[in-house]
Write a protein that binds this DNA or RNA. Structure first.
Lengths: 207, 207
DNA sequence: GGACAATACGAGCGATCACTCGTATTTCAT
DNA sequence: ATGAAATACGAGTGATCGCTCGTATTGTCC
């Protein structure tokens, strides 16, 4: 009676060869998701794209969903690295300059792999098993909230939770939408303007 | 060599009986989309939920996609009605009051059927056939831009296209995210605060 | 070089999918 | 009342899906 479609990898690869197989699978999953979308990303096709047999795929991942979770985890880890390093670089800067740098970092993070970002954001079914995403959201949300708290004196009196929600959601949506539906905005010239406007949005709101 | 999955209805229902069938199909499609999601919404299941045979379904809609498009069209028509009437009511009001009313209308529109809104926004594959959605976006975007243009004198010097993009995207994201992931914000008491903050975000940005 | 574990393989199973088509029933103009 | 058009029906088709399992190959240790 065990629930079938677990989302954890099935076994850890101990030899070099199998680690390469696992990497190829995750890599191929990301590639297929980008080129064909979630629905068309069958396990058979993923295995084929990875140059791996369908049997080997199921040795390491118990379900299609588990593979997608692996891709999401990898992607989120990369994003968190960007967020963390941006916050570290910005900690000592004045508020206005810092916010601008954070906005720029958010846009850059989206530009890294926009197509993958799009699929993960738009096409992955929202099953209960995607707790990793929630954890990611909570973590970055917490980091931004802490940043605002450090600059409490430069911010007007507002509920910090609500303000964090407003800022994070707005900036995320602006960068997201710009990258996905307004690629003309992201020419190296125009992107500066977008950063200006998004920074203004947040700064004017906060003080 | 004709392309198969057209998205237009197949024939128009001329008798009362068949009009009821078509209505039942669209209605059932929406219901199944909400309860089971896009992937699990098979045509067989939709037909069953509508109390209609699978054969009759294909008499009126040539594909699953066509049914989904019908649901989207209906939903968008309802939303446009809300947007239009809100803009009409607001035309004569002062800018600050008007913006607040528009923000409130946006939140209300999302609250009407949040689950359907979520499925349409998150789970429907972005095929080229969904031009109706693009048209809807362009239309509401144009209406808001015109509203801002009418209040040109109360807005600081900015590129109006860019400003419209920033405002529409931010408010849409705030209402969308609040409805889908932060339902606690939408208690009748807290929703006033959200409207306040969202209005402030836009107003402070614009002037 | 032999033995045993780790890894890789892929044909094939049962389920489900979108969709067709031949047939039965209802509506309506006459 | 009648016949043709409109409507409704649902078993069945071929394709694809996620996934299993028995077998072949490779790596490791003695």
């Amino acid at each position: 009676m065990a629930r079938r479609p677990l989302t954890n990898p099935r076994k850890c690869a101990s030899q070099e060869r199998s680690r390469a197989t696992v990497d190829a699978l995750v890599e191929a999953t990301a590639r297929i998701l980008v080129s064909d979308g979630f629905d068309k990303a069958s396990t058979n096709r993923i295995a084929q794209a990875a140059g791996v047999s369908i049997g080997s795929l199921y040795q390491y991942y118990p379900s299609k969903e588990a593979l997608v979770v692996a891709v999401i985890d990898r992607h989120n880890r990369q994003l968190m690295t960007v967020v963390r390093s941006a916050l570290a670089q910005v900690a000592a800067q004045p508020f206005e300059q810092g916010v601008r740098a954070l906005v720029a970092a958010a846009i850059d993070a989206h530009r890294a792999d926009p197509k993958l970002h799009r699929v993960l954001a738009e096409q992955i079914p929202r099953t209960g098993a995607l707790e990793g995403v929630e954890a990611f959201n909570r973590e970055s949300y917490g980091l931004i909230r802490a940043y605002l708290e450090n600059h409490r004196d430069e911010v007007r009196a507002v509920d910090l939770d609500l303000a964090t929600f407003v800022c994070v959601t707005s900036i995320e949506a602006l960068t997201h939408t710009a990258v996905l539906h307004r690629s003309e905005i992201l020419s190296d010239a125009a992107v500066e303007t977008l950063i200006d406007e998004a920074s203004q949005l947040v700064l004017r709101y906060l003080r």
